[in-house]
Simulated assay, not measured.
Amino acid sequence: MKIVGEPTWNMMREEIRFCLQRDEERFYCAVSQIALNDYYRTEDTQEAAFMNFRAHTNTVVTLAMEQIDNGQVRNDGVYFVSSTLFGS
C-alpha cells in the first residue's frame, strides 16, 4: 500500500488526511494532530503534527492499514488513526 498525493490539513477536525492505494482501490485516511503530537511528545501544533507524520509515515500507514483491513471506517468514509491506536 502506498500514499497517493500529498497529505492535507483538515482544520475542522485538526487532522492530517491522506489517501492510500492498494492495487486500483483507494482509501481515504486521517490521523489526528493530538495522536501524533501526544505519542511523539511534541508541542501540540499543526506544524509538529506534519513533522511527526513525515518522520513516522510508515507507522501511521501501518495503523491506517489495520483500520482498513478491520473495516473500521468513520461515518464520513475516512479510516481514522486515533490516539488509542498508537498505544496498542
Rank of each mutant, 00 (worst) to 15 (best):
A55M: 11
G71M: 08
R17P: 06
A49I: 00
K2I: 12
T42R: 10
D69L: 15
S83Q: 11
L85M: 11
Y40M: 01
L20R: 06
L20S: 12
N58V: 13
L63H: 05
D76P: 02
R74L: 07
L85P: 03
N37E: 14
E25F: 08
G87K: 14
L36F: 10
K2H: 10
M51V: 11
E15G: 05
H56L: 03
L63I: 09
A49Y: 11
Y39H: 09
K2C: 11
Q33N: 14
F50E: 05
T59S: 14
I3W: 09
Q21N: 07
Y39W: 13
T45C: 08
I3R: 05
V31T: 02
A35R: 04
T84P: 00
Y40V: 03
V60C: 09
R74N: 10
E14V: 07
Y39A: 08
S88F: 14
I16C: 01
K2V: 10
Y40P: 00
V81M: 03
Y28M: 10
D38A: 15
Q46A: 13
E25W: 07
Y40E: 06
Y28V: 07
T59Y: 14
V4N: 00
A55H: 08
M65K: 10
V4D: 00
R22H: 12
E66C: 08
I34R: 13
N70F: 12
T62E: 06
N37F: 12
M65L: 15
Q33Y: 09
V81G: 00
F18P: 01
D69H: 14
Q67T: 12
R17W: 05
L20G: 09
L36A: 06
G77W: 03
R41V: 09
E15P: 03
L36P: 00
T57C: 07
T42Q: 13
C29D: 02
I68W: 00
I68H: 03
E25S: 07
F80M: 05
A55I: 05
Y28T: 04
L63G: 02
Q72L: 12
F80D: 03
V78I: 07
A49D: 12
R26K: 10
I34P: 08
R41G: 12
I16T: 01
V61F: 04
M12A: 15
T57R: 05
Y39C: 09
L63V: 05
